[in-house]
Design a protein around this nucleic acid. Structure first.
Lengths: 111, 111
DNA sequence: AATATTTATCGTAAAAATACGATAAATGAA
DNA sequence: TTCATTTATCGTATTTTTACGATAAATATT
């Protein structure tokens, strides 16, 4: 029974883990890169660039959206996605904090 | 058919995604924190700290080991885990690179 | 109005992740 | 030697992820 006992862990761990999970697929990293490169909000291009079916790409976009890493507005038949810089930076900060904390232990580490 | 088309993506994306995936669970982040805090290689303590069954913790340790984020040597009935700083730092660098690349696009971004 | 285009969602299938109890393997202690 | 301790692995169940075709919904285009 894969009862996910996530509630047992600290909020920080949960939050960071959910970010990491959202970036835990090359397609989603690739999507972020594409979105970052464009000067305007991106519509269909993503599907052409990512080597996956349109439905699958849409699913990955949904995952990124649910992690709040990107924003999307529906604009008629075309939809418009762009990076949510606020969340990206938050993630970056949280990761830096974790790494700093880990590094503290490095000094007294035996291996 | 969940054929994982990972080979279609760049090596960089794949590598970073596999790191992120390994950190995509609060238990594994918690384990890394515990390992980093200790001055000596850690044996059984982890199971006592993580609110999961021994078998499950062992599975998470295996995942971290496969991602090369930790090292483990069997030492009789006790096993000895410690952080693989080399990999942690590699991961940190790769993430920084990605964020820098993403940030480049921020300047010309519309939203 | 009819057709084409774009994208989200539905349905489905297979694989991977999550979790745990039970057990085996290895060693230390009695 | 026998028993206790520790940890990995096996077996199993459930959930989640990944992927795609088909379809629906919304809007251009003709």
């Amino acid at each position: 029974m894969a009862i996910h006992k996530l509630e047992e862990f600290g909020k920080k761990e949960q939050h960071l883990a959910s970010f990491a999970k959202a970036m835990g697929h090359p397609a989603r990293i690739a999507i972020l890169k594409v979105l970052a490169q464009r000067s305007e909000c991106v519509c269909g291009e993503i599907v052409n660039v990512i080597p996956l079916a349109q439905a699958t790409v849409s699913q990955h976009l949904k995952a990124l959206k649910e992690a709040d890493l990107i924003q999307g507005t529906i604009d008629g038949p075309k939809s418009c996605y762009c990076i949510n810089w606020k969340t990206i930076e938050k993630f970056y900060t949280e990761f830096n904090t974790l790494f700093s904390k880990l590094q503290e232990g490095k000094l007294k580490s035996c291996c």
